[in-house]
Simulated assay, not measured.
Amino acid sequence: MATNGDLNRKLRMALVGGGSGSFIGRVHATAAVLDNRAALVAGALSSNPERAKASAPDYDIPEARAYGSVAEMLEKENALPEDQRIDFVSVATPNFTHFEIAKAAVEAGFNVICDKPMTFDLAQAEELLKVVEGSSAVFAVSHNYTGYPLVRQARAMVQNGDLGEINAIRVQYIQGWLRSKLEDSDQKQAAWRTDPKKSGAAGCFGDIATHAYNLGRYITGLLPEEISCHLRTFVPGRALDDYGTAIIKFENGALGTVTASQISHGRENDVMVEIDGTKASLLWRQENPNEMIVRANGEPHKIYTRDPNAPYMTELGAAACRLPSGHPEAFFEAFANVYRSSYDAMAARALGQSFEKKDTIYPNVYDGVEGMYFVQQCVASSQENGVWLPLKHAAARR
């Protein structure tokens, strides 16, 4: 089969961020090329021009396309012949920079894959949505947990009615790495995540609760109605929350909870989702991603393993698998599935074909807006001692 179908070539990628000391930049670069459908050819790898160019050899980016700024990159890439210039820009930078980079890239005519949360605040997210809607660009948000095969299996099972009507959703994301005040040291990742000028109005809830909320929405498709939230800062002197719990009322009457922590001793990246339906319930954990438990009263508990050839796998779940059963697939592969599903739309755009922009398998700009509305309403509710506030945004998708 030709690379990217009728397009018959690799998509050309530019990376923004990912310079020395970056974690997520390397993840983006690895996931993007995992399926041999894209090549990293250009980048503006740091806000410091010297560091940006010095980091280029780490990614095998040629010197001529190692840019000192995003503005320079967009201008010079647009000046290249169409068969050489980039197709998309991956944004792997701190929250407060996302909006300007993504907006400029879309306005320059390029597709975008943006790290989450999508922007610094809701106003920026809503403005970015208008820019994307006014363009022909593909816009994805890297809520990578949606890419796990058994998460997509769970989504299809809910859509097929296997769980019955959904009554409850419990999602958590529990970490412990910020139990001590790392931001007072030279820990780069802690410093910007706990800084209101760079992370926004929320700390833990902006950083990881957005993943948890998105996961529940992605699997169930339930539309939220109201939210009540309590955020806490347990490490003395920290400027933003490091723990919190939200209760969500959904339109169908279901209740949901989102709990996030970055101060729980010994916890690493424990993303867990439980969904209770009238017919059955399911449980999936990111730290054991190749198994999902499905339970029904009076029946033995069922353990679904990631197996692309198993008859119980749905088409959506099986399509997200790369390896035979028993060979673990995990974080990079899930991240790559977000890229892979967006590539189908990018290839269609390059061929002048139509493509879906809202009802997509990959998280998109609408999900990004929802995430920022979630953060805003959680902060506002917590400031008023957990008052109930509306949560359904006009951009919400099923």
Rank of each mutant, 00 (worst) to 15 (best):
F332A: 15
T314Y: 01
M313F: 07
A318Y: 03
A350D: 07
A336Q: 10
K358H: 10
T314L: 02
L316G: 00
P363D: 07
Y339S: 07
K302A: 12
Q353F: 12
P300Q: 11
I293K: 06
G298N: 15
V338P: 03
Y312H: 04
A347F: 02
H301E: 15
P328I: 03
C321R: 02
S341G: 09
F335M: 14
G298Y: 14
S342Y: 04
V338F: 05
A296P: 08
T360G: 03
P324D: 05
I303E: 06
K357H: 10
E333M: 12
Y304W: 02
P328K: 10
P328G: 09
F355E: 08
R340A: 07
N309H: 09
G326K: 03
N337Y: 05
N337Q: 11
G317W: 00
P300A: 14
A296K: 15
V338Q: 03
P363Y: 06
K358C: 06
E333H: 13
I303K: 08
A345Y: 03
G317Q: 00
T314D: 01
E329F: 06
T314M: 02
A320K: 01
A330R: 13
P308F: 01
A310T: 01
A350M: 12
I293D: 07
A347Y: 00
D359A: 11
A330H: 15
F331V: 15
P363L: 06
I293C: 05
A319W: 04
E356R: 02
S341Y: 08
V294A: 03
A318G: 08
D307E: 01
R306K: 12
A336L: 11
P300T: 10
E329I: 05
A296W: 05
I303A: 05
G326P: 03
P308V: 02
D344F: 08
K357F: 11
P324K: 04
S342V: 08
A319M: 07
C321Q: 03
A296Q: 14
R349W: 10
E329H: 08
G317S: 00
P328E: 10
G317N: 02
Y312K: 00
N309M: 07
F331K: 14
R306S: 06
A336S: 14
L351I: 11
A336G: 14
Y339I: 08
R349L: 12
A334C: 12
R295Y: 13
G298Q: 15
H327F: 13
P300N: 13
R340E: 09
A347N: 06
E299C: 13
A319E: 09
A336P: 09
V294Q: 02
A348E: 09
T314V: 02
S341R: 13
G298A: 15
A296N: 08
C321E: 01
G317T: 00
Q353M: 14
P300L: 11
A348N: 12
G317H: 00
M346K: 07
N297F: 15
R295I: 13
L316M: 07
M346R: 10
A334I: 11
E315S: 08
Y304T: 00
M346W: 09
R322W: 11
A347R: 00
L316E: 07
Y362D: 02
P328Y: 09
H301I: 14
P328A: 09
